[in-house]
């Protein structure tokens, strides 16, 4: 029972982090299109730093480090911020790659039709980019889910924390952690299935993404 409640938190942390990551990734990918020198330097630095730093280290900086600088962040926000910043860096790369795969002629055609840059971005680039990014997004989502157990280190009562107290109480670690593994796998399968349903709904012949 406690595990089920924990699973709720795990799913909540995952969804919030995925949303944060998507927002940050999309913003970064869009900004990278502006091709303004100082901005691209900043973006390159951002990608490099947040793809190099381990999740646990960043989480500790945000949750345990920042308070000593006078910035206090609640556990849930700290976790979501950490995973959002890191997955945002990976997603920005995925989105950027997908955007550069959009046929330049199609963008030119949109311009020739009289669309503004905003319109061609909204109606041509974005819809294609999302479709081509689906495998990358599934990977990123999986990573996020798999990093959520770290949330126990900052005191969020997700699956892992519940499992630990349960294991301490019952001394049945093997069964409990096996059950935890199965719960995670079920969540993973569930989300992948959801993604696949979406993917099928929006699938377009000829827009390959492998």
């Amino acid at each position: 029972m406690a595990l089920a409640k924990g699973a709720g938190y795990t799913i909540l942390v995952t969804i919030a982090s995925v949303c944060a990551g998507l927002a940050i990734g999309l913003l970064m990918a869009v900004l990278s299109r502006l091709q303004w020198k100082p901005l691209s330097l900043f973006l390159a630095a951002y990608l490099y730093v947040f793809r190099s730093i381990p999740v646990l280290v960043l989480l500790f900086i945000v949750f345990f480090g920042l308070p000593s600088m006078g910035i206090r962040i609640p556990p849930f926000t700290a976790m979501v911020l950490t995973l959002g910043l890191i997955s945002g860096a990976y997603l920005a790369e995925i989105f950027r790659g997908a955007m550069s795969a959009v046929d330049r002629d199609e963008i030119l055609a949109a311009e020739a039709m009289g669309m503004s840059r905003m319109q061609s971005f909204l109606y041509i680039i974005l819809p294609q980019m999302f479709r081509m990014s689906i495998p990358g997004m599934i990977n990123e989502f999986t990573s996020i889910l798999k990093y959520t157990p770290f949330a126990y280190t900052v005191g969020i009562p997700e699956i892992m924390k519940e499992a630990m107290s349960l294991a301490a109480l019952t001394l049945r670690g093997v069964e409990i952690y096996l059950a935890v593994g199965i719960i995670y796998f079920a969540i993973y399968k569930l989300f992948v299935m959801l993604f696949m349903v979406f993917e099928k709904k929006f699938r377009v012949p000829g827009l390959a993404h492998e």
Partner: peptide
């Protein structure tokens, strides 16, 4: 420019249909 382009149809060598 955008009003102007709406008034000029353009057909490309490689079609440039929107794939999605």
């Amino acid at each position: 420019v955008r009003k102007l382009r709406q008034d000029i149809g353009f057909v490309f060598q490689h079609f440039a249909l929107y794939r999605h």
